[in-house]
Design a binder for these strands. Structure first.
Lengths: 154, 154
DNA sequence: TGGCAATAATTAACATGTTAAGGATTCGTA
DNA sequence: TACGAATCCTTAACATGTTAATTATTGCCA
């Protein structure tokens, strides 16, 4: 035990771990992902793979960089995930003919079907959290979180 | 591209991935951890190892279960992290004599020194985020995040 | 007291996060 | 037009996240 435990806000000292922002973010993410992982458990895909499919479904075929950006994944992760999804037949990957360094990823019919088959259930999960916090708080939470993202225009 | 893109709130449809709570949580965590990882880069320990040391420093010796709880780590992760920290001489581990299944973890002097040597810098990082959002918003953010944690008494 | 359920922790196996290094291709420009 | 810098992506290596199986110990109770 040291001398820096549970201070008031803004004192320039470290907060108690119980009021730590990183830990709070982890716990919240854990709570939010729980029902989503549960929903995905019978599909055999992970939350990250689901995220990639969702982005592709929303925006259409994307180059790897844009896809990584919108799905919030690092390149090395995306490389592996794209390979996995290809093996599962949920996406296809084609090389850009104009710039042979670039790749385009596109969702397949099977991939789109997986999204369609679960979008209602996913929407209910979102609505449940919205109800938990109240619509107004939910929107403000999204805004506050966005302000912590350095890549955000805000 | 499907038909379920960018709906108003509470319509029962999936939101655009740009307003997705899981993605917002990931991005925010990314933004918050960036300066912390930066601070830790010269110590050779990870953010999770830092979290474990912080909890031990705050609460004193803890059994593995309580430690996992307070540091928001799963058991398998904690097992590995505890071994790593032991090898680095930052914690010690002792078996409970009353119940030989249980282990207690305790921070060492070297571990405490690592915390002390960085607590000012860590506190400045926290204060910067507090200033970014404003103290009031910062506290509300912590409260909203806590309400998404199922293990929370709220 | 013998045996089975419950608990604490570890191990295993696989996916992802993270940083650094390496390949392939393109671009800019001297 | 040759060549070095920049870009896109992959691979490598290690740490963590996640789920399931396993081990060791304790507790319960017939």
């Amino acid at each position: 035990m040291n001398s820096k435990t549970s201070q008031a806000a803004g004192t320039g000292a470290l907060p108690s771990t119980a009021r730590s922002l990183p830990i709070a973010l982890i716990r919240a993410r854990e709570g939010v992902m729980l029902p989503i992982r549960d929903m995905l458990s019978d599909t055999g895909i992970t939350e990250q793979q689901w995220r990639v499919l969702r982005v592709l479904s929303e925006f259409g075929p994307l180059d790897t960089k844009t896809l990584a950006d919108r799905a919030s994944l690092l390149f090395p992760s995306l490389t592996r995930i794209a390979n996995t999804l290809k093996e599962k037949g949920l996406v296809t990957q084609t090389r850009d003919k104009a710039d042979r360094r670039r790749q385009f990823v596109e969702i397949t019919l099977a991939g789109q079907k997986l999204i369609d088959d679960h979008s209602d259930q996913a929407a209910r999960i979102v609505d449940r959290f919205k109800a938990t916090l109240g619509a107004e708080n939910y929107e403000q939470l999204l805004d506050l979180l966005a302000r912590l993202d350095p890549d955000n225009p805000g």
